[in-house]
Simulated assay, not measured.
Amino acid sequence: MLKTNQIVINEARNAAIEVLLHNAHGPFHSLPRTAGWGYPEPYTRDLMFALLGIAVSGNQELMSSMRHVLEILAKNQTSHGHIPSLVHDAEDRGASDTTPLFLLGVGIFRKVTNEKDFLQGALDKALQWMEYQSPSDRCLVAQQPTSDWRDEQWVTGYGLFVNTLTYSYLRLLNLHERANQLKHDMGRFTITNGIMHKHVHEGLVVKYKPYYAFWSYKIFSSERFDLLGNSLAILSGLASPGRANEMVSWIEEECIHMRNNGELAVDLPPNFFPYIKPSDPDWHERYEQYNQPGEYHNGGIWPFICGLYIAALVAAKRYSLAEKKLIALTQAIKLSKSKSLKFGFNEWIRAQDGMPMGQDWQTWSAAIFLYAAKCVETKRTPFFNDATT
């Protein structure tokens, strides 16, 4: 890596720590803020993802803050084992991704601290909750629309993101038998002929494409590309090395086409494509306000997801490409809505013109940058490297 690029990356790392320390104590029970100013609440999913970067930072103040988060989540866990969407609010329920993210977070925390029995009771209850999340009593986890991090986008039935999270925590917690069964279930093809025969189960593999389907349920599915879910599939080892390499090449080729078509202005992939347009059958009226093509969940560029994509590139041994994308991400995290910030760590960026559109100093944007930088530096993917078998 060029010395000038390394200097900027190190500067960005220091800025990320500054953001995380600023956000470490918010107005709700001194729990971390989700963003520096716009989101004072402690959102469970954001903070569990942030643990990846905090865990490789070596910063003990931040790790102590995350211990507090995990302990409060365990305290606010429901009697059935479900984890709330807001750390401090036991009544804010209904998310499909908070419980698997909690399980992943506990697994990461145990690895860093070597506290092998940390929150064992809460972990057992959360595992029990996840056992009951499949309507067909399989390992595949189902969900209701807008119940995962895409709270403004429909994912119906077996979503890729939640199932790759589930696979990741199963590996990290050494629950390999169930992980193998989930991998088997996900490895089935989606059903495309409109008929579901007896004893034939749907999966998430798309015929003639290297990536996994966005979601699948019975005879219905979406073959639009989910960058977060597919990055986790590579990171966790769910995707074979051959599939991972083919997927990366496909993503980069598609991004070239989008740039040529004026649909993408930066050298980072959108979180979701092809974008859903008003004329498409999967367009919802509410998207008019929140999810225009190339924006928010409908193709916005999310720095935290791009950071996980960079980690996936390292997992796929595409080291030069990972370094190139890290440099592009370093430029992207400089963008801010507040012009006074040298590093904005903005929430999301509009794909077509590269304009920052979300909240500045977003916790997971800063934390996952740290994780991506560590992966590129070491050519390893901490926590995922140890979990794959």
Rank of each mutant, 00 (worst) to 15 (best):
L103K: 07
L103Q: 09
V106Y: 04
V106D: 13
V106I: 10
G107K: 13
I108N: 00
I108T: 01
I108C: 04
F109M: 10
F109W: 14
F109G: 12
R110H: 11
R110A: 00
K111H: 05
T113W: 08
T113K: 03
N114Y: 14
N114S: 07
E115D: 10
E115R: 06
K116Q: 06
K116P: 08
L119F: 03
Q120A: 13
L123V: 15
L123R: 15
D124R: 04
D124S: 07
Q128H: 15
Q128S: 15
E131G: 08
Y132E: 06
Q133P: 01
S134V: 02
S136C: 12
D137A: 12
C139P: 07
C139H: 04
L140Y: 01
L140M: 00
V141M: 05
P145S: 02
S147A: 10
D148R: 07
R150F: 06
R150Y: 11
D151G: 13
E152T: 15
E152I: 15
E152Y: 15
Q153T: 14
V155P: 10
V155R: 13
T156H: 15
Y158G: 02
Y158V: 00
G159K: 07
G159F: 10
L160K: 00
L160E: 09
F161Y: 06
T164S: 13
T166D: 13
T166C: 04
Y167E: 00
Y167D: 02
Y167S: 04
Y169E: 06
L170D: 09
L175E: 02
L175C: 08
H176M: 12
R178H: 08
R178K: 14
N180C: 02
N180R: 01
Q181C: 03
Q181H: 06
D185S: 08
M186G: 03
G187D: 05
R188D: 06
R188M: 00
T190H: 05
I191F: 09
N193F: 09
